[in-house]
């Protein structure tokens, strides 16, 4: 195995997708190049000369790699790295937001803590969402006009609904965090404001149901929305916050019952 040839081929495959079919091409290319190189040396060619000729004989390997690696899940490695960077930055920003909040709270700077930490966390969420969006595989490109290829292309493409749902989800959680801090600092009711996150989970269901194509998540969303409304009305009306949360347990039970009913009906 010639080291120069190995280094050259490694450079050619640096950004190639990590797939078996691609690594097989690499091994095949390495073997054939080395054998050709040995033949040229045996014919009395100088090593530099032989190396140059072997390299010149490779041709357009990038198009071949792209063709063979097509349809693979991970994108090119620099996109993966970028996605990783944004995810890491997102996590870091959210952590920084939490730290800033505790620090400033300790210094009794409530308003500043709210504004700064919320801004940091919002940036963090945005970065996380952007990073996860990058990781999504490229939609499959159909090879010809046959129906099989059309099917593959259609089902590999992330739907408009999926992307809208992602945007709505990030917006929702930024607003929840923002409201949590604002309401908590203004009212000082830290003991109960955490309920906002429960509301967030429920609203998430609603978001899912709006941007969903299946009936299942649709009913879940409707049941949960109804539960929230009923919960708020009854709680404010009666003031019995200590037991009204049971409504959510009831909602989960109703949702499950509806699901079983649907499965049972489909079986009939």
């Amino acid at each position: 195995m010639n080291e120069r040839i190995l280094a050259h081929v490694d450079a050619l495959f640096r950004d190639a997708p990590r797939k078996r079919s691609v690594s097989e091409i690499r091994e095949e290319l390495l073997g054939n190049m080395n054998e050709k190189y040995a033949d040229l040396l045996a014919q009395g060619r100088a090593p530099d000369d032989a190396f140059a000729e072997v390299v010149a004989g490779i041709g357009d390997i990038q198009s071949l790699i792209a063709e063979v690696g097509k349809g693979g899940l991970p994108g090119s490695s620099d996109v993966r790295q970028k996605a990783l960077l944004f995810s890491a930055a997102g996590g870091g920003l959210m952590l920084a937001g939490a730290l800033v909040m505790f620090l400033l709270l300790a210094l009794n700077a409530g308003t500043l803590a709210t504004i700064l930490s919320t801004a940091l966390m919002a940036l963090g969420v945005a970065s996380l969402v952007y990073g996860s969006g990058l990781k999504r595989p490229e939609p499959y490109q159909k090879e010809d006009d046959s129906f099989v290829e059309e099917y593959k292309e259609k089902y590999s493409r992330p739907g408009r609904n999926t992307r809208l749902r992602g945007a709505a989800t990030s917006l929702l959680w930024i607003l929840i965090v923002l409201m949590y801090f604002l309401i908590s600092f203004i009212t000082g009711g830290w003991a109960s404001t955490w309920v906002l996150f429960l509301v967030g989970v429920v609203l998430q269901q609603v978001v899912n149901s709006i941007f969903s194509d299946t009936n299942r998540t649709m009913t879940t969303g409707m049941v949960m929305t109804t539960a929230v409304i009923v919960y708020l009305i009854i709680s404010f009306g009666t003031g019995r916050w200590d037991i009204t949360w049971l409504i959510f347990l009831g909602a989960v039970a109703v949702d499950q019952a509806v699901r079983f009913l649907r499965i049972w009906r489909e079986k009939e």
Binding site: E28, L29, G57, I58, G59, I61, S63, L64
Partner: peptide, 10 residues
């Protein structure tokens, strides 16, 4: 060229 050859194999 090597690339032409492997493309044809494929």
């Amino acid at each position: 060229k090597e690339a032409t050859l492997y493309g044809a194999f494929r």
